[in-house]
Design a protein around this nucleic acid. Structure first.
Lengths: 222, 222
DNA sequence: ACCTGAACACCGTTCAAGT
DNA sequence: ACCTGAACACCGTTCAAGT
């Protein structure tokens, strides 16, 4: 009933960029990146192509807006007035959890790293590094390592989710992997390691261990 | 003349996966990722679609094969019997230079990190970390940080090259960036930093500084 | 076994036309 | 100003047909 009255309203409430982005995020979350087409959008919003293109220039702009929307909501308020090391840890975890909840964000981050919210996150990290008393030079390389580590992990998570959703079962994926890994160069010293290390689901604990390793490196710069 | 005789031969020398991959690499290098279509391939090889699909299953397989081809050639012989720290440095530089020479490799690496040659590189890195005497646990997180840093940088390089080739001139790109960065959250403490840090061309020196920072972190684990 | 090329399904995007 | 939807250009992929 509530739905029906909303449907009746649908010509009353104007189409806005916000509503388009909301629908895009809903589609991306529920059916994955390949399901976000302009046709699916027009169907979900009950409009035509032109209506969407009136509010949004591109599919690219739509994707960055969606990423922006999800990331900013998570990043606001994170890392307020705590210890810099803790703040960096909190930022890292916020990114990790977001990408694991919305894998398409990971792909988008690695595709266009400096659009959307990423510059703000970078700036936040730099502020923490400043608080640690690092030199400008050390700030630069430290921030670069942290950001690129995040981007790399994000890309990996979304890639793994993509593979998992395509191949129906795990065993097929692993067989597929072993097959591709096994052959290429003749002798292959530690195949079990290479087959085991690329984790199907990047571990939160492992991710944090990486962050802490980087922080150890940063600590030597203070 | 040499070309003509080669053209006459074209039905004599069989189409092979290797020749297809070679042509793919040539197209990717000269005209970028968006230019690699099956139509361009058939035109370049003077065949039909079916001929290509006979040797190659997918566009995905074609891209991983192309990445494989470029990466293995660079990685073979790198880091033979030197100091582990030097070896890791050499691996890092090899990846960096490859991606800068073939930006599409960067995109592919971040899209499918564990197909193609990446597992071998990972395995090589783990061997170096083993030589440093790290514990299994430390090997894991150290290798993860290094690999993901590489993947993140690779993604960034290819993204920047994409942007640069799309926007004709640099100033337009920077203005575009400043516009997107300036607004989003009201106050924005260090805007010049955020505008300056995302480097249009990721610096080799900065990249190496990051590697060394990570190595400092690794050194605390020994 | 290996190759050809018309045909199919499906994209993003445009644009004349409506309100 | 804002919306509609047919139409366009361009993909990856298939497949009946050839050699």
């Amino acid at each position: 009933m509530a739905i029906k009255s909303q449907r009746a309203q649908r010509r009353t409430d104007a189409l806005s960029k916000e509503r388009i982005v909301d629908m895009a995020v809903r589609i991306l979350d529920s059916e994955g990146e390949s399901a976000l087409t302009f046709r699916a959008l027009t169907a979900g919003l009950a409009t035509g192509f032109g209506a969407i293109y009136w509010h949004v220039a591109d599919k690219e702009e739509l994707l960055t807006a969606a990423t922006d929307h999800v990331l900013t909501r998570v990043m606001t308020g994170v890392a307020e007035n705590t210890d810099p090391r803790e703040a960096i840890r909190a930022i890292a975890l916020a990114i990790f959890d977001t990408v694991e909840m919305h894998p398409w964000v990971g792909a988008q981050i690695s595709r266009e790293p400096w659009q959307s919210t990423m510059p703000q996150i970078l700036e936040n990290i730099v502020r923490q590094l400043q608080a640690l008393g690092l030199s400008k030079q050390a700030q630069l390389s430290s921030a670069s390592v942290l950001m690129n580590y995040f981007i790399g992990v994000a890309a990996q998570i979304s890639a793994n989710v993509c593979l998992l959703s395509r191949d129906t079962d795990r065993s097929a994926l692993l067989a597929h992997r072993a097959e591709r890994v096994g052959h290429p160069q003749g002798t292959y010293p530690v195949p079990h390691l290479a087959a085991a290390l690329p984790p199907d689901r990047v571990n939160r604990k492992e991710f944090l261990a990486g962050v802490e390793l980087i922080q150890l490196g940063i600590a030597t710069q203070t």
